[in-house]
Amino acid sequence: MKVSAREIAEIVCLQLGRRQVAPQDRLMEDLGADSADLLNLVVALEDRWGIAIGEEEAGALRTVDDLRRLVESRD
């Protein structure tokens, strides 16, 4: 599934209450997300694109761009 960096950034901004984020931003270190935020982000991605994300994949997420790659890996 093709998704743009902008669409992903939009979701991250909404979940974390930020005006802008960059693809290389690290979710925890740079954007201040905690473990609950990461889970909430995953749920938002699942709802937005109607996909299911496994716990193992969710556990490997580090950056904003990791989210995009994860969604893109879906059909």
Binding site: C13, L14, Q15, L16, G17, A36, N40, A44
Partner: peptide, 17 residues
């Protein structure tokens, strides 16, 4: 974004949605 930012600033946590 502003609403979520306010919650995070005041309560120290973000809403799920």
């Amino acid at each position: 974004v502003q609403a979520v930012a306010e919650i995070r600033a005041e309560l120290g946590l973000g809403p799920g949605r």
